[in-house]
Simulated assay, not measured.
Amino acid sequence: MGLNTEKRGENVTLAVFYTIVFLLSVPANAMALWVFCHPKNGTSVARVYLTHLAMADMCYVLLLPMRVVYHASAGDWILGEVACRLSGFLFYLNLYCSLYFMTCISFDRFLAVVFPIRSLSWRKTAYAKVVCAILWVTVTVSMAPVLFSKQTIASQLDRNNVTVCQQLYLESPSPRALLSTTVAFTVPLVVLSLSYILILFKLRSAKQQTQSPVHLKAKRMVVLTLVNFLVAFLPYHVHRFIYIVRYNQEDLSDVEVTSLTLGNRVTSALTCVNGVIDPLMYFFLTETYQRTLLKLLGRSKSPRADQYTSPGVDLSSAF
């Protein structure tokens, strides 16, 4: 009875969590897409990446109702095989596209801050669009096998026959999965870390007595991106690595199996927080997004330039 109550509580908690994230993130990312794609707001390299990041986030959070239905059905996947395959494919597609678009934004900010003049010839919107296209194609091809293999299995839960969608929380404990997880996560981890370390060094070395708007804007970007990375992406990949390594060992106890399974659910759920944190980044860093949101809320804000310049530190055309 205790186990049944625990499972029921877990399902209710996750269903409520996904519902809240869905309700917060969908309008916020929809507004971001409207702002970034509106012709009068202009374009820049950063806006190209931000637009694709918002697209990936939107596609991701639109999948959450399927998870709500799953948990509301007490862990029984009632949506069929096709929906299971699509949910798994789109989950990984948008998860890694979001992660890599964040990485692109970080690298672009690194170039703008550390090499403000030399990087002008590299930081062109045409190049950014090509990078985005390559990322979408690469991740799509990498995750395509999910669409062509059976993903639902019959199981027994609390003496009831249920259908389990393996793409929701079950991880493949294979050496190939370990390698792909390590490579997919290490590249953005290294790029993000080095970019922000060098940005902070550049800001500290800037010869200014007071904190200018460009300094504050850059520091906010670093903090918000790192919070997003630490909350949404790091726990999932660390736990996935532990799961794959530990699950192949023979001395695995029932308690550890239960802990690993729960960890999969929790860290997988945390990844969707990305859809809420990114709009916070848009609000604090993008003047057009901020003004649009305040206007919708009935609060006005005096017009202000969307770009700042500062000797030695250039974030012009940043957002």
Rank of each mutant, 00 (worst) to 15 (best):
I199W: 02
V255G: 03
V191T: 07
I199G: 00
L216P: 04
F201I: 15
R204L: 07
Y196R: 04
T210K: 13
Y247W: 11
L260T: 06
F201Q: 13
H237A: 07
A218D: 07
D251N: 14
E250R: 09
S193T: 08
L224N: 09
T258A: 15
V238M: 06
R240I: 05
F241T: 05
L194A: 14
L216K: 15
V214N: 09
A232M: 05
L226S: 08
L203N: 07
I197N: 00
F229V: 03
Q249A: 10
A232W: 04
S195M: 01
L226Q: 05
Q209I: 13
E250V: 12
S195T: 09
A218V: 12
P213Y: 08
E250H: 12
L224E: 10
N248T: 13
L203Y: 00
V190N: 06
F233D: 00
T210D: 12
F241A: 04
V214S: 11
Q211V: 15
L260K: 03
R246W: 03
Q209A: 15
L203H: 02
V227H: 05
I197A: 00
R240Q: 04
L252P: 12
A232L: 03
Y247T: 02
Y236S: 04
S212Y: 13
T225P: 07
Y236T: 05
Q208L: 12
Y236F: 12
R204H: 10
S212F: 07
S205T: 14
P213T: 01
V190R: 04
H239C: 03
V227R: 01
F233N: 08
V255L: 10
P188D: 03
V257G: 05
V257T: 15
V190F: 09
V222E: 07
V191A: 06
L200P: 05
V190M: 03
T225A: 14
R220C: 12
S205V: 13
L216V: 12
V231F: 08
M221R: 07
S193N: 08
K217R: 14
V231E: 01
K207R: 15
L252Q: 04
N248E: 09
M221V: 06
Y196P: 08
L192E: 03
L230G: 02
N248L: 10
K202Q: 11
H239G: 06
L194K: 11
Q209G: 15
Y247Q: 09
R240H: 01
S253T: 14
K202A: 07
V227M: 05
R240W: 01
E250S: 14
V231Q: 00
Q249S: 11
V222D: 04
S195D: 01
I244W: 01
N248H: 13
L252K: 06
